[in-house]
């Protein structure tokens, strides 16, 4: 049932009557995500400089195997090709969580696929299937990545805790706080702000209900997730930038380029 008569003809890519800097936002997203993707891939394949004392970078947490005291299983399995790093196995989950995130989907559809490049701006392609069929119908798996992302919060919180224990010089451990401890702790805080404001979580904790009044706990949970969800984009960017900085910080310590100052 199309409307009677023809609506305006489709505009070509980038064509618009807008006279503001509509290209600025998709360009910023394109540059920001590209920097992260290049950096993350470099670090995943580097397979080195991922720990410093009690600090473990989030890119390699949990460290499934290796010779490090952080490793869950000591040594490298013989059957494993040398080029596979532990980060490759675990980063599938947080990467999948971000890739299927409702905020990021809208952002990268615009910035990378021009679908559309910006609101009321002409598109690149004629054909459009949206998320109605393959391949993008797979985005509906988002809630399963959420479950893993929540598990990762506990793992990273444990890493932050371990980052509070330093060698005491007598073979034992003593409590302390270094700049790295704060960096690791903030990483958990920012990732929690992002993960716990997830649209799928908002649905699962109470959004599926039509009547809240009989479920006070669910209503409270829904309110809390909604509160974070209202700033989901900000949490998404802050946590993305900070997880990259956390990795950079630990790697620079491991390379001996930076010094970790002890505060306590």
């Amino acid at each position: 049932m199309t409307p009677a008569g023809a609506s305006a003809a489709r505009r070509g890519f980038g064509q618009t009557s807008r006279n503001d800097a509509w290209w600025l936002q998709p360009l910023t997203v394109f540059i920001g995500l590209s920097i992260f993707l290049v950096y993350a891939n470099f670090r995943v394949f580097q397979n080195a400089y991922f720990e410093f004392g009690g600090y473990l970078t989030p890119f390699y947490s949990p460290l499934l195997w290796g010779d490090s005291p952080h490793a869950w299983f000591q040594g490298v399995p013989d059957w494993l090709p040398r080029w596979i790093s532990p980060a490759m196995v675990i980063l599938v989950f947080p990467a999948g969580f971000r890739f299927t995130c409702y905020y990021y989907r809208g952002a990268y559809y615009k910035a990378f696929w021009g679908d559309p490049p910006a609101c009321a701006v002409g598109e690149l392609r004629d054909e459009f299937r949206g998320e109605n069929s393959l391949p993008l119908i797979v985005q509906n798996v988002h809630r399963y990545f959420l479950y893993f992302a929540i598990a990762f919060l506990f793992l990273l919180a444990h890493d932050a805790w371990k980052g509070m224990w330093f060698d005491d010089g007598a073979g034992g451990k003593e409590f302390g706080i270094g700049v790295g401890t704060i960096v690791l702790t903030l990483n958990v805080v920012f990732l929690s702000g992002y993960t716990l404001g997830c649209h799928s979580l908002r649905h699962l904790v109470g959004g599926f209900l039509d009547v809240f009044s009989g479920s006070k706990g669910r209503k409270k949970a829904w309110d809390c997730v909604t509160c974070l969800n209202e700033h989901h984009m900000k949490w998404a960017w802050i946590s993305l930038i900070w997880v990259m900085f956390t990795d950079l910080y630990v790697s620079m310590l491991a390379r001996g380029e930076w010094t970790d100052w002890r505060i306590l």
Partner: peptide, 15 residues
């Protein structure tokens, strides 16, 4: 209703 076609550009919210 074709809700799967929506790819969450949020332009509707903007305007």
């Amino acid at each position: 209703n074709g809700i799967g076609y929506c790819n969450i550009t949020k332009c509707c919210t903007v305007v």
